[in-house]
């Protein structure tokens, strides 16, 4: 388990490389004198895989301890808040989306200050609506459409 944690960063890089290598599988490679669309992605994937594995081995030998300061709760709250914007923004409008997202973000902290969060949410949604919808003319509504 500890070994896996030390190697995590390098393995992540290698995995990204592997995904791109698989994706590049059906592209024409061409040759070095006349490169096809697949040459660059394939070469880069190999570099990423080799570098990732090398980093993983070095970190395990060094016992680097893996991720520092990883905060799953904060990561989850921010990720959910962004996902809420992606899902809700067009249908539910700026106000509702922003207030819900602000509450989700507030959950990342140990204690929830409900009243303060609501005030921040309302003020922020009015501000965002004024800047983006009124100011920049984005096709978003203020309140839910339905």
């Amino acid at each position: 388990m500890k070994t896996l944690r030390d190697a995590g960063g390098g393995l992540l890089i290698a995995t990204i490389g592997l995904l791109f290598l698989l994706g590049a599988g059906d592209m024409a490679l061409g040759d070095l004198r006349n490169m096809g669309p697949g040459m660059f992605p394939t070469a880069l994937s190999v570099v990423a895989i080799v570098a990732g594995l090398a980093i993983a081995v070095i970190e395990v030998l060094r016992g680097s301890g893996g991720a520092i300061g990883f905060d799953f709760r904060a990561l989850a709250c921010v990720a959910v808040a962004i996902a809420l914007y992606a899902v809700m923004l067009e249908a539910a409008g700026v106000v509702l989306t922003t207030i819900v997202a602000v509450f989700v973000l507030a959950l990342a902290r140990p204690q929830l200050r409900a009243a303060e969060t609501l005030v921040v949410g309302i003020a922020l949604s009015v501000f965002a609506w004024a800047v983006f919808v009124k100011g920049l003319g984005m096709p978003l509504s203020f309140l839910p459409d339905f």
Partner: peptide, 29 residues
């Protein structure tokens, strides 16, 4: 909350599509 709102709504405005918000999520994580 201000940063998250500016990022999400701002990136939506680039192409008026929520696709880029998902992209921000992926890149952010």
């Amino acid at each position: 909350p201000v940063i998250v709102a500016l990022v999400c709504i701002g990136v939506f405005g680039v192409s008026n599509s929520t696709f880029d918000i998902w992209m921000v999520l992926l890149m952010g994580v």
